[in-house]
Amino acid sequence: MSRRQEFLTEVRYNDFLAYSDETKEFWANNTFESDTPEQEASLRVTHFKNVALKKLFISYTAGLEITSLVPLLEELITHYENRQKKLSLSENIVDISPLAIDDWLDEYEERIQVISLCILLRRTDLLKRFVELFDKAGYNGQDALYEDLLCKVLPDREDIYDWYHEVYTPLLQAIYADEKDEASDLLAEYCKEWYPAFKKAPWHDSHLQGDEGSYVGYWAFEAGAIAFLYGIDDSKIDHMVYPKDLVEYARNYQLRSENE
Protein backbone atom coordinates (compact mmCIF):
# COMPACT_ATOMS: atom_id res chain seq x y z
CA MET A 1 0.00 0.00 0.00
CA SER A 2 1.56 3.28 -1.16
CA ARG A 3 -0.69 5.49 0.93
CA ARG A 4 -1.26 9.14 0.13
CA GLN A 5 -1.99 10.08 3.77
CA GLU A 6 -0.08 8.73 6.72
CA PHE A 7 -3.12 8.07 8.91
CA LEU A 8 -4.29 5.09 6.87
CA THR A 9 -2.95 1.71 7.97
CA GLU A 10 -3.11 -1.55 6.05
CA VAL A 11 -5.30 -2.99 8.79
CA ARG A 12 -7.84 -0.17 8.44
CA TYR A 13 -7.79 -0.42 4.64
CA ASN A 14 -8.22 -4.20 4.54
CA ASP A 15 -10.91 -4.10 7.22
CA PHE A 16 -12.88 -1.58 5.20
CA LEU A 17 -12.66 -3.67 2.03
CA ALA A 18 -13.90 -6.68 3.97
CA TYR A 19 -16.73 -4.62 5.45
CA SER A 20 -17.79 -3.30 2.03
CA ASP A 21 -18.24 -6.90 0.87
CA GLU A 22 -19.86 -8.13 4.06
CA THR A 23 -22.42 -5.33 4.21
CA LYS A 24 -23.72 -6.28 0.76
CA GLU A 25 -24.25 -9.86 1.91
CA PHE A 26 -25.85 -8.82 5.19
CA TRP A 27 -28.38 -6.38 3.73
CA ALA A 28 -29.30 -8.81 0.97
CA ASN A 29 -31.13 -10.79 3.65
CA ASN A 30 -32.03 -8.11 6.20
CA THR A 31 -34.06 -4.90 6.27
CA PHE A 32 -33.50 -1.48 7.78
CA GLU A 33 -35.81 -0.45 10.62
CA SER A 34 -38.38 1.87 9.06
CA ASP A 35 -42.01 2.96 9.08
CA THR A 36 -42.76 2.26 5.42
CA PRO A 37 -41.35 0.19 2.57
CA GLU A 38 -40.46 3.44 0.80
CA GLN A 39 -38.48 4.63 3.80
CA GLU A 40 -36.68 1.31 4.03
CA ALA A 41 -35.70 1.54 0.39
CA SER A 42 -34.42 5.06 0.94
CA LEU A 43 -32.33 4.02 3.95
CA ARG A 44 -30.94 1.08 2.00
CA VAL A 45 -29.73 3.09 -1.00
CA THR A 46 -28.33 5.79 1.29
CA HIS A 47 -26.26 3.18 3.11
CA PHE A 48 -24.82 1.80 -0.10
CA LYS A 49 -24.16 5.29 -1.44
CA ASN A 50 -22.15 6.05 1.69
CA VAL A 51 -20.18 2.82 1.39
CA ALA A 52 -19.41 3.54 -2.27
CA LEU A 53 -18.26 7.07 -1.43
CA LYS A 54 -15.98 5.83 1.33
CA LYS A 55 -14.59 3.11 -0.91
CA LEU A 56 -13.65 5.68 -3.54
CA PHE A 57 -12.00 7.93 -0.95
CA ILE A 58 -10.10 5.18 0.86
CA SER A 59 -8.90 3.74 -2.45
CA TYR A 60 -7.35 7.07 -3.35
CA THR A 61 -5.93 7.48 0.16
CA ALA A 62 -4.42 3.99 0.02
CA GLY A 63 -2.44 4.91 -3.07
CA LEU A 64 -4.27 3.01 -5.80
CA GLU A 65 -3.54 3.95 -9.40
CA ILE A 66 -5.69 6.89 -10.44
CA THR A 67 -7.21 5.01 -13.38
CA SER A 68 -8.54 2.38 -10.97
CA LEU A 69 -10.72 5.06 -9.34
CA VAL A 70 -12.86 5.52 -12.45
CA PRO A 71 -15.02 2.37 -12.03
CA LEU A 72 -15.57 3.34 -8.39
CA LEU A 73 -16.74 6.78 -9.48
CA GLU A 74 -19.08 5.24 -12.05
CA GLU A 75 -20.62 3.05 -9.37
CA LEU A 76 -20.95 6.00 -6.99
CA ILE A 77 -22.86 8.16 -9.48
CA THR A 78 -25.33 5.32 -9.99
CA HIS A 79 -25.84 5.17 -6.21
CA TYR A 80 -26.67 8.90 -6.11
CA GLU A 81 -29.22 8.41 -8.85
CA ASN A 82 -30.77 5.50 -6.95
CA ARG A 83 -30.83 7.54 -3.74
CA GLN A 84 -32.61 10.40 -5.46
CA LYS A 85 -35.29 8.07 -6.84
CA LYS A 86 -35.93 6.29 -3.55
CA LEU A 87 -35.79 9.48 -1.48
CA SER A 88 -38.29 11.08 -3.82
CA LEU A 89 -40.74 8.23 -3.22
CA SER A 90 -40.13 8.21 0.52
CA GLU A 91 -40.55 11.97 0.96
CA ASN A 92 -43.14 12.34 -1.81
CA ILE A 93 -41.13 15.17 -3.38
CA VAL A 94 -40.47 15.04 -7.11
CA ASP A 95 -36.84 15.82 -8.07
CA ILE A 96 -35.69 16.05 -4.47
CA SER A 97 -32.00 16.75 -4.01
CA PRO A 98 -29.96 13.70 -2.96
CA LEU A 99 -27.99 15.92 -0.55
CA ALA A 100 -29.06 18.78 1.75
CA ILE A 101 -26.43 21.14 0.41
CA ASP A 102 -27.81 24.45 1.69
CA ASP A 103 -28.38 23.29 5.26
CA TRP A 104 -25.41 20.97 5.92
CA LEU A 105 -21.83 22.01 5.18
CA ASP A 106 -20.56 18.41 5.06
CA GLU A 107 -23.21 17.44 2.50
CA TYR A 108 -22.38 20.48 0.40
CA GLU A 109 -18.72 19.47 0.57
CA GLU A 110 -19.63 15.95 -0.48
CA ARG A 111 -21.35 17.29 -3.58
CA ILE A 112 -18.37 19.50 -4.44
CA GLN A 113 -15.93 16.63 -3.88
CA VAL A 114 -17.82 14.34 -6.26
CA ILE A 115 -18.09 17.09 -8.88
CA SER A 116 -14.36 17.69 -8.56
CA LEU A 117 -13.54 14.01 -8.92
CA CYS A 118 -15.60 13.87 -12.12
CA ILE A 119 -13.62 16.87 -13.40
CA LEU A 120 -10.18 15.61 -12.37
CA LEU A 121 -10.81 12.08 -13.65
CA ARG A 122 -12.04 13.63 -16.92
CA ARG A 123 -15.47 12.02 -16.87
CA THR A 124 -17.78 14.72 -18.16
CA ASP A 125 -20.44 12.10 -18.84
CA LEU A 126 -20.62 11.23 -15.15
CA LEU A 127 -20.51 14.91 -14.21
CA LYS A 128 -23.58 15.62 -16.35
CA ARG A 129 -25.52 12.81 -14.67
CA PHE A 130 -24.56 13.96 -11.19
CA VAL A 131 -25.24 17.66 -11.80
CA GLU A 132 -28.64 16.90 -13.31
CA LEU A 133 -29.82 15.63 -9.92
CA PHE A 134 -29.18 19.04 -8.35
CA ASP A 135 -30.23 21.19 -11.27
CA LYS A 136 -33.62 19.46 -11.34
CA ALA A 137 -33.93 20.15 -7.61
CA GLY A 138 -33.53 23.87 -8.34
CA TYR A 139 -29.92 24.37 -7.26
CA ASN A 140 -28.64 25.72 -10.56
CA GLY A 141 -27.84 29.44 -10.46
CA GLN A 142 -27.77 29.54 -6.66
CA ASP A 143 -24.13 29.07 -5.63
CA ALA A 144 -20.95 30.61 -7.06
CA LEU A 145 -18.59 27.69 -6.43
CA TYR A 146 -21.00 25.21 -7.96
CA GLU A 147 -21.30 27.32 -11.10
CA ASP A 148 -17.59 28.19 -11.29
CA LEU A 149 -16.67 24.51 -11.17
CA LEU A 150 -19.13 23.67 -13.93
CA CYS A 151 -18.87 26.61 -16.33
CA LYS A 152 -15.50 25.47 -17.70
CA VAL A 153 -16.86 22.01 -18.48
CA LEU A 154 -20.60 22.24 -19.10
CA PRO A 155 -22.40 24.78 -21.32
CA ASP A 156 -24.93 27.43 -20.29
CA ARG A 157 -24.01 27.79 -16.62
CA GLU A 158 -24.89 30.98 -14.73
CA ASP A 159 -22.65 33.74 -13.38
CA ILE A 160 -23.40 33.98 -9.66
CA TYR A 161 -21.89 36.17 -6.93
CA ASP A 162 -23.40 34.50 -3.86
CA TRP A 163 -22.47 31.24 -2.20
CA TYR A 164 -23.88 29.07 0.55
CA HIS A 165 -20.92 28.57 2.89
CA GLU A 166 -18.22 31.02 3.99
CA VAL A 167 -15.45 28.41 4.13
CA TYR A 168 -15.20 28.51 0.33
CA THR A 169 -14.41 32.25 0.15
CA PRO A 170 -10.60 31.90 -0.34
CA LEU A 171 -11.16 29.33 -3.08
CA LEU A 172 -13.54 31.62 -4.93
CA GLN A 173 -11.16 34.54 -4.45
CA ALA A 174 -8.38 32.45 -5.99
CA ILE A 175 -10.40 32.16 -9.19
CA TYR A 176 -10.71 35.92 -9.57
CA ALA A 177 -7.35 37.03 -8.17
CA ASP A 178 -5.59 39.68 -10.27
CA GLU A 179 -2.11 38.23 -9.79
CA LYS A 180 -0.93 34.64 -10.26
CA ASP A 181 0.94 34.64 -6.94
CA GLU A 182 -2.16 35.88 -5.15
CA ALA A 183 -4.22 33.04 -6.64
CA SER A 184 -1.62 30.51 -5.49
CA ASP A 185 -1.53 32.02 -2.00
CA LEU A 186 -5.32 31.92 -1.72
CA LEU A 187 -5.36 28.29 -2.86
CA ALA A 188 -2.79 27.46 -0.19
CA GLU A 189 -4.81 29.38 2.40
CA TYR A 190 -7.91 27.40 1.51
CA CYS A 191 -6.06 24.10 1.94
CA LYS A 192 -4.75 25.24 5.32
CA GLU A 193 -8.19 26.26 6.55
CA TRP A 194 -10.07 23.30 5.03
CA TYR A 195 -9.81 20.70 7.79
CA PRO A 196 -10.53 23.03 10.74
CA ALA A 197 -13.57 24.36 8.89
CA PHE A 198 -15.19 20.92 8.97
CA LYS A 199 -14.89 20.27 12.70
CA LYS A 200 -18.64 19.51 12.88
CA ALA A 201 -18.54 17.02 10.01
CA PRO A 202 -19.12 13.38 11.01
CA TRP A 203 -15.74 12.37 9.58
CA HIS A 204 -13.71 15.04 11.40
CA ASP A 205 -10.98 13.55 13.64
CA SER A 206 -11.92 10.04 12.48
CA HIS A 207 -8.20 9.21 12.20
CA LEU A 208 -8.01 9.42 15.99
CA GLN A 209 -10.29 6.38 16.29
CA GLY A 210 -7.56 3.96 15.22
CA ASP A 211 -7.89 0.95 12.96
CA GLU A 212 -11.49 0.32 14.00
CA GLY A 213 -12.57 3.88 13.23
CA SER A 214 -14.19 5.39 10.15
CA TYR A 215 -11.28 7.27 8.60
CA VAL A 216 -11.07 7.04 4.80
CA GLY A 217 -9.07 10.18 4.00
CA TYR A 218 -9.30 13.96 4.15
CA TRP A 219 -9.33 15.48 0.67
CA ALA A 220 -10.07 18.97 -0.65
CA PHE A 221 -10.63 17.68 -4.17
CA GLU A 222 -12.31 20.97 -5.06
CA ALA A 223 -9.03 22.84 -4.52
CA GLY A 224 -7.42 20.60 -7.12
CA ALA A 225 -10.31 21.02 -9.55
CA ILE A 226 -10.14 24.81 -9.31
CA ALA A 227 -6.35 24.78 -9.81
CA PHE A 228 -6.79 22.60 -12.90
CA LEU A 229 -9.70 24.52 -14.42
CA TYR A 230 -8.30 28.00 -13.84
CA GLY A 231 -4.60 27.34 -14.40
CA ILE A 232 -3.50 28.22 -10.87
CA ASP A 233 0.12 27.45 -10.01
CA ASP A 234 0.09 24.80 -7.29
CA SER A 235 3.81 23.96 -7.42
CA LYS A 236 4.43 25.27 -3.90
CA ILE A 237 1.40 23.64 -2.32
CA ASP A 238 2.39 20.64 -0.25
CA HIS A 239 -0.61 20.33 2.06
CA MET A 240 -1.88 16.93 3.06
CA VAL A 241 -5.44 17.55 1.84
CA TYR A 242 -4.40 18.75 -1.63
CA PRO A 243 -4.67 15.98 -4.29
CA LYS A 244 -1.63 17.07 -6.31
CA ASP A 245 -1.23 13.87 -8.34
CA LEU A 246 -4.90 13.96 -9.37
CA VAL A 247 -4.40 17.48 -10.70
CA GLU A 248 -1.32 16.32 -12.59
CA TYR A 249 -3.33 13.43 -14.02
CA ALA A 250 -6.01 15.83 -15.28
CA ARG A 251 -3.42 18.15 -16.82
CA ASN A 252 -1.62 15.30 -18.57
CA TYR A 253 -4.91 13.87 -19.83
CA GLN A 254 -5.84 17.26 -21.28
CA LEU A 255 -2.43 17.61 -22.96
CA ARG A 256 -2.75 14.18 -24.56
CA SER A 257 -6.23 15.00 -25.80
CA GLU A 258 -5.06 18.29 -27.30
CA ASN A 259 -2.15 16.56 -29.08
CA GLU A 260 -4.20 13.76 -30.60
Rank of each mutant, 00 (worst) to 15 (best):
E40G: 15
L8C: 06
A174W: 12
K54S: 14
Q173D: 14
D148L: 12
G141V: 00
Y230P: 03
E110Q: 15
A177P: 07
Q254V: 03
Y190N: 02
N252K: 15
T169D: 14
K244D: 10
S257Y: 08
Q142H: 11
V167D: 13
D178G: 04
S20L: 05
W163I: 01
Y249M: 04
A62K: 15
K85T: 06
D95E: 07
L154T: 08
P98T: 00
L89Q: 14
A223P: 04
Q173T: 03
W163K: 06
I77P: 04
A223F: 05
S2F: 13
L229F: 11
E75S: 11
I96H: 13
R4N: 08
E110C: 15
C118T: 00
S116H: 06
I101P: 00
T61A: 07
K55N: 15
Y146K: 02
V153W: 06
L121Y: 05
D35T: 05
D245S: 07
P202R: 13
I119R: 01
L56K: 01
E179C: 01
T169V: 07
V167H: 14
D245T: 10
A223W: 12
R4W: 07
V45N: 14
E182K: 14
R122K: 12
A220N: 06
E182L: 12
A250M: 05
G224F: 13
W104P: 02
G210H: 11
V45H: 13
W27A: 10
E158V: 07
I112N: 02
G224H: 09
S2K: 15
I119T: 01
Y215M: 05
G210T: 01
K24N: 11
L99T: 02
S88K: 03
Y253R: 12
A223N: 05
L87P: 00
